[in-house]
């Protein structure tokens, strides 16, 4: 027998023995069996499959550190409850109790390990009391209450610059609202509305960049910019008015409301105001109804409507 054939024979027997010895272990492990050294019996086990985002977390099983990092499977677990703890540097520890059943896979596969020091960046370069984000144009606006200025930047805080100043209102401002074209900004409290022009070209027409409109007719709940970016729809506690965004503008009442602080909504695309109001029915009881006030200007120019309304309501 040549030396190659002797080596080959040895290899064959090594392979055969490896197969015969390895197969029971591989099969029993695949089927979830584990040899229980206490009882000297094969016991059916379960396994825990763990995946984390990000990967590479240390895995503790009942406070015992395992060799593997996530993603991993903890095989051959006798049925019972186990404590799983996952640790990753600079991330919050994840821990929970897991029930393992025989012949079952318990999956922990949607675990997110959150970083302890999130990547936070301050965007404003001035003191601010309020801000809002124009998603369409990727602009952040900031209100500085100390110098009464409005600033803007991009979404990363770059290109930080002043865009307008404003007159502070008292009592406190309820809301800030942009016109649809983003060239004007209004804010209001219960009886005053301030309109700020963000479009520097407007100043060419001799208009003030900011002016205040007094509203003594009621307590303002909500204001909508009309789609023409010039008129304001004011929803007060007892009426819905419309007025022009110019100094000295006089409100025109569109609807008188029975219900105070009613819900309202302005549909920009269809120029319609939806509002909730109550009405006394024939049974003498008050019922809430949702109304739609159409301001569609193509067929009935708002400008004309307002002129007409200020003098006399049209007859049917």
């Amino acid at each position: 027998m040549s030396s190659e054939q002797r080596i080959r024979a040895a290899l064959f027997y090594i392979a055969l023995v490896t197969f015969l010895l390895g197969l029971p272990f591989i099969l029993s492990s695949s089927l979830g069996y584990k040899f229980n050294r206490r009882t000297f019996q094969f016991t059916k086990t379960g396994l825990i499959a763990i995946k984390t985002q990000p990967q590479g977390a240390d895995v503790y099983l009942d406070n015992r550190l395992l060799n593997d990092k996530t993603p991993t499977n903890i095989n051959e677990l006798l049925p019972g409850r186990y404590q799983i703890k996952l640790e990753l540097k600079d991330h919050y520890t994840y821990a929970r109790d897991v029930d393992v059943a025989q012949d079952k896979v318990t999956r922990l596969e949607k675990i997110i390990l959150f970083p302890k020091r999130p990547d936070i960046k301050q965007l404003n370069k001035e003191k601010i009391s309020f801000c809002w984000i124009d998603e369409d144009r990727n602009i952040v606006y900031y209100v500085n209450p100390e110098d009464n200025n409005i600033y803007k930047s991009d979404l990363n805080g770059e290109h930080f610059e002043k865009v307008a100043n404003f007159i502070p209102l008292l009592p406190l401002v309820k809301k800030w609202k942009f016109s649809w074209d983003r060239n004007k900004l209004l804010y209001f409290n219960a009886h005053q509305i301030e309109v700020i022009s963000l479009d520097k070209n407007n100043e060419e027409h001799g208009r003030d960049s900011a002016f205040i409109l007094d509203y003594p007719l009621g307590s303002i709940n909500e204001i909508f910019w009309h789609s023409d970016n010039y008129h304001l729809i004011v929803v007060a506690d007892n009426r819905i008015d419309i007025l022009e965004a110019r100094p000295g503008s006089i409100p025109v009442t569109l609807v008188k409301l029975n219900k105070k602080n009613a819900y309202s909504f302005y549909d920009f695309r269809n120029d319609a105001v939806y509002f909730l109001d109550s009405q006394i029915a024939s049974d003498g009881k008050a019922y809430d109804n949702l109304y739609k006030l159409d301001l569609f200007t193509k067929f009935y120019p708002l400008q004309e409507f307002i002129k007409l309304k200020s003098n006399e309501l049209p007859k049917d």
């Binding site: 190659e4 290899l11 064959f12 392979a15 197969f19 591989i26 099969l27 695949s30 089927l31």
Partner: peptide, 28 residues
């Protein structure tokens, strides 16, 4: 699945064995 695992394991052992034979034959 049990049969496939047996076959897979057999194939792994066989692959290692035959590759070793290949190395020996190549050497010769």
């Amino acid at each position: 699945a049990i049969l496939i695992i047996i076959f897979d394991f057999y194939w792994i052992i066989r692959t290692v064995y035959l590759t070793t034979l290949l190395i020996l034959a190549h050497r010769k």
